[in-house]
Structure formats: C-alpha cells, structure tokens
Design a protein around this nucleic acid. Structure first.
Lengths: 216, 216
DNA sequence: TCGTGTGAAGACGTTCACAGCT
DNA sequence: AGCTGTGAACGTCTTCACACGA
C-alpha cells in the first residue's frame, strides 16, 4: 500500500487510516438507518472491529468532531469521511478482461451501490463475450485510450488471466490510467505514478488455510 | 489479520510474512518454469515487489536455506514454503451464497489451480440458482452442517448480500466452520476461534480512488 | 460521570549495513 | 567477489492511561 503523495500542507493521513475510514463509513451508514444521531468511540469501534483508542485517533485526522461525554455526531462524521474519501460523486471505472471473473464483476451490483460506475469493458476478443445481462459495452483493447479519454475514467479493474495481465497493464498505463485494481496473481510492474491494488483470491484462501490448521 | 496460535515450540511466523510467502510461492513457480535452479534474494525480491533484506528475513523463518555467494535453491525453497502454507494437499472449500458474485466464483478457475476445490455451494433459494456451468451441487442452507461434515470442509467462501451475511456466518459457525473468506461489506461478529478474512471490492476501489486523486 | 483528545510507551515491521561463508 | 544471515537502527502503527470538557 502506498501512503505517499497527498494533499500538501495538510497533515498526511496514514494509508491504514484511510482503509479504516472505508470501514467506518460502512458502519456509519448502517447506524444512521437506525435513527440515532450520535455514537461513542467504543460502540463504533466494536462495529468496525477496531480498538476504541485507534478509532478516536483516526477520527482526529478529520479535525475535532467529537463532543466529550457524548460521542460523535453520526451524520457529520459520515459526511466528513466521505469528503476525505472523495466519494461525493460517482466515479467512472473501466474493466479490462471480461472472462469468467470479469463478466461476473460487471453483473455484480456492489460497485454501483458504493459510488463507482463501470462505464465500459474491454477484452482481447470482445466478440466472444456473452453480453447478456452485462449492461455495458464491451470494446476491443485497441480502443482503450480513446474510450478512456471519452469517459474520463482514471481507474481500472483488471481481470485478465495471469499470462496476459502485465501486457494489459502496460496498455492501461500507456492509455494514462492512474489506478488499477488487479485480480491477477502476479505483481504488476508499473511506473510509480500508477497505483496498483491487488486482490488475489487464492492467496486469501491460503492465508485462512494457514491460520486455521492446528492439528492435522 | 490474526497472527496468534501457531505451531508451538517453533518460532511463530508473523502474519505478514505468511502473506508474502504466498507471493514468493507464485514467483518461484514461475521461476522454476524457466529451468533455473537457484535465485538470489535481490532477483526474487524484485519479482515479488519487496525489499531484498525483507525477503531474506522472511526466508529465514524456514530455516537456513540459502547458500552464501550463490542464492537459494528454487525447488527446495518452493517445497518448504508450500509445506508451511499447508499446500501439499487439495483443500475442500464450500461456498455460501450463489448469487451474482458467488456463482461467478464457482465458475472461476483460479481456486482450482491453486490447490482449493469448491466441493459444494449453498443458497437460501437453491432452486433459483442457474446451475448451468457451475459444476458443483447447490444445496439449501439447511443441509449445511451435514454436507460440511461429509465433505470435511473447514473453509467457506461467503458471498451473500450484506443484509444476510451475519446470519449466514452464524450458520457457518454453528456448523463448525473454522475459516471464512467473506465478500460482504460488513464486519462479521464471530467467535475468536473462527478466522475471518474479508475482501471488500468497493473498499479496494475506494482506496485507489483516494490515492489517485491529486487535483480536482 | 461519560467519553473525547492526546502524550507517552510499547509492539511491530522494515531497512541498513556488515560480518562471515562459499 | 558474491550473496546470505542478522544485530541494530529506524520508522510506523497500536494501545494505554489520564487530563479535560460537556
């Protein structure tokens, strides 16, 4: 995870804190559905699965939001976190590799709900992609930079097979991508200016497998 | 991430190191395809995207594998890592929630390749699941503990919608699950004895979105 | 009294830099 | 000469513990 380059002249917020902001945001959304207006650090911390002291320290990066003896105002807090996360507006995202996993992600509603919109998909063989239910156009990789510019997309979801992942990443970099969420089980080599976030499903299972095993 | 309870009387390996072992394993597999037999810490480190010193420190948890002046024997190293990760045998895994994302994961070949086999799927409404191409039986949640015992599954992949995730997690816990890989955007409340690993796709995008934005 | 804000301590993870083996 | 193994320094993240405001 990179926690470099941020808003200058403001205190830089640690990457791990940003990550937890996302979690807090989720919890706050659920809390605000239950018509409460304040929440204490211990309550929110339990919901988020963190230590109360850590929560307070994280929230202090937003300025002083809490009221001593009372807690934090849920609505304002949520607002402030979403402001920091840059989640006020819908973000356009493209998807590269509409195979098994890729086309599933296109159908998956999770992104839409959270402020991201997949505006276009790309594949090396777009004519083979079963476009039923997909709801976004599938282009050939050749039109990547053209479509990216038109749609003003800065983020990409990459789900091509390992063998072609680096190649596709190169194309994305050439087209001016700024961030890649990769599902390929390899370490992508990209310029420092491009941020890569990698989700490796088999690796996550492997972790579980390790920590679960006790006696065999 | 939990890095508690491990092999007693042996030095405990940090969770982050275990995570990197997975990465190293990948890199070693690719290296061994290119008919080399040793690799230096700096080469492997570059492939894995880590610092050479860190790599050496990690590998020392396996005992002393390297040869000064030469490097590490690829085959033995790979063997040792897979041994630690418990990846010698195929691991049975069940999947709960065969909706959009769930059924995509069932079709996804990534797990099979990496030593995990999804042996059964469960859904609250199994009759609605389009089972074309899925290749594993889809059961009703009622038969969870029975099938789990029969298949000797200790790990579960959870992809039910947020509203029902906790409920499904409870069922899994009751049925004796030991590890859950969750795709739901909520923090599951489970006993300490159950390990949860959470992958939140929208959150990963949110991270990218934060670090990518510079000027607006 | 309750709960935030925060200095200080502690735990943890990373990197340096070099001794020592091949 | 090349590269590992590792003490020690460093930096970062987490947690404690308590002063202070509501």
């Amino acid at each position: 995870m990179k926690d470099e380059v941020q808003n200058p002249e403001k205190v830089t917020i640690p990457g791990k804190t940003i990550y937890r902001f996302s979690t807090y945001n989720r919890c706050l959304i659920r809390l605000s559905e239950n018509s409460l207006d304040t929440v204490s650090s211990s309550t929110l911390a339990k919901a988020a699965g963190v230590n109360p002291a850590q929560l307070r320290r994280d929230l202090n990066y937003l300025g002083q939001f809490g009221t001593r003896g009372l807690g934090y105002p849920i609505a304002e807090l949520k607002e402030a976190i979403q402001q920091v996360l840059g989640r006020q507006h819908l973000q356009p995202v493209i998807l590269v590799g509409a195979g098994n996993l890729g086309s599933a992600l296109l159908r998956y509603q999770g992104f839409q709900k959270e402020g991201f919109e997949v505006v276009a998909a790309f594949d090396a063989l777009p004519e083979l992609v079963v476009s039923r239910d997909i709801g976004v156009p599938v282009f050939h990789m050749d039109s990547l930079s053209e479509v990216m510019r038109r749609e003003k997309a800065r983020l990409a979801i990459l789900c091509v097979p390992a063998e072609h992942a680096q190649e596709a990443a190169n194309d994305l970099v050439d087209a001016g991508i700024e961030g890649i969420l990769s599902f390929s089980p390899i370490i992508l080599q990209v310029p420092d200016s491009v941020m890569v976030n990698s989700v490796d499903l088999a690796m996550e299972l492997e972790q579980l497998s390790f920590f679960v095993r006790r006696e065999d």
